[in-house]
Nucleic acid binder design. Structure first.
Lengths: 229, 229
DNA sequence: TTAATTAGTGTGGTATTTACACTAAAAATG
DNA sequence: CATTTTTAGTGTAAATACCACACTAATTAA
């Protein structure tokens, strides 16, 4: 079994990371301002090249860590982009990954010390190369996924108010959802635990906090089942 | 804007094609017996390397054409596989594509003259490299897709019996479906045209033939909506 | 004490899904 | 010619899921 592939073309393979977060302001995405050529000074997804002895999943993790310091973020592969001139410097194929993370757990200082910044998805600037296309694709996937199965565990803090969860769904799906129907639907899924604790910051009355019941939540994810709001 | 990427590693990029078909025997997949190293004589998906001046979608079409002579097959990208030793000869990343096609339209002679052969998905032999994994992944995707939106147009002959369509769904989802509920659901989708013609080959009574109403069918595909059997 | 704000809760109508079994037509057989 | 065999074709009722919709409770601020 020899090296019989020697005449084949080799190409550069990159990964690009699309990181979604959520806070009071709604759905966010993490971008960097490039301090290197090409396209220095423009906004971009976090990207880097695959190394010879590395699998794509690891490359995505490494790239994300380089720009943000984040560790242990599970990313899912989205799509592989191969337009001939997508990178003006040299033919590069790029594999996009995306993840949902909790903004609070990945604090702002960290991001300041690195190069990344959160943007509202509704206010994303023009991005380099085909990154706009990647982002649009990722949002479509996130919406689709959200309408099919519960999300939220990854995006919300440990303890959260029902109204935050509602707002998360409204942000992702970009539409209003009836509060009562939402609550009864979520409750019927049986994936939340209602705590005795109340959050008093935003209202006179205070609102109960919830956490996800991790086991039940994961079980629901497995038998991929539909949730329609 | 210079070539600033010169120190980065380059890799071989391949495409592999997973082609589904359907006939009386159920759901089928197209494989080749390799007549070249490595793994000569073993069964495998149809694969080939990406060329420098080619996009992935085109590479997949070219590869499929090489092994089968088929033209104009629309393939959808599935996933990109990058395990370090997935190809024992040299580090190769592979982008898998899949398609659904109509077996009858792509006749057996053609396949004989080339290298490919149809296998029942339930009787697929051991495949080389990580092709088993790719196939399993493709089947999962096909099932998921089928439970979300109508399939069939690509897999059935121009004119078909309701019982064939039912069998197609049963083959893909690998479960029994109630005939009456299936028919009323399909009818409610309003994507079939009932012909005056009957097929007399398999029954005394004969059964009506149908065709897909291409326009309505495509419209349904666009607003990706759920169908549960 | 009054006003303002957010939390929290329930019902009824409609549409969808599921479970379920018999008759009709034609040909093949004896 | 009567009987058997095979597949096609059809409907209903019960259960569940979905959707639209509005008021009260609690608390604090003014």
């Amino acid at each position: 079994m020899l090296n019989s592939y020697s005449t084949e073309d080799k190409v550069l393979l990159a990964v690009d990371c699309i990181i979604f977060g959520f806070d009071e302001g709604g759905l966010k995405i993490l971008l960097i301002k490039r301090d290197f050529e090409p396209e220095r000074g423009k906004w971009s997804l976090m990207g880097g090249f695959l190394k010879k002895e590395e699998v794509l999943d690891d490359a995505a993790i490494r790239v994300l860590n380089t720009y943000t310091g984040f560790n242990d973020i599970y990313m899912e592969q989205l799509y592989t982009y191969s337009e001939i001139d997508r990178d003006p410097v040299e033919r590069t194929i790029s594999v996009a990954y995306y993840a949902l993370i909790n903004v609070e757990n990945h604090n702002a200082e960290l991001i300041q010390n690195y190069h990344a910044k959160w943007f509202s998805v509704s206010e994303v600037p023009k991005l380099i190369f085909d990154h706009d296309k990647m982002l649009a694709h990722a949002i479509r996937r996130l919406r689709y996924r959200t309408s099919m199965r519960p999300v939220g565990f990854e995006l919300l803090p440990e303890k959260f108010k029902m109204s935050q969860l509602l707002k998360l769904y409204e942000s992702i799906l970009d539409k209003e959802i009836d509060k009562r129907n939402f609550i009864s639907k979520i409750n019927s899924l049986d994936i939340l635990i209602k705590l005795d604790e109340k959050d008093m910051t935003s209202s006179r009355k205070g609102s109960y906090l919830y956490t996800f019941d991790k086991e039940k939540y994961d079980a629901k994810l497995l038998n991929n089942f539909a949730v329609n709001f």
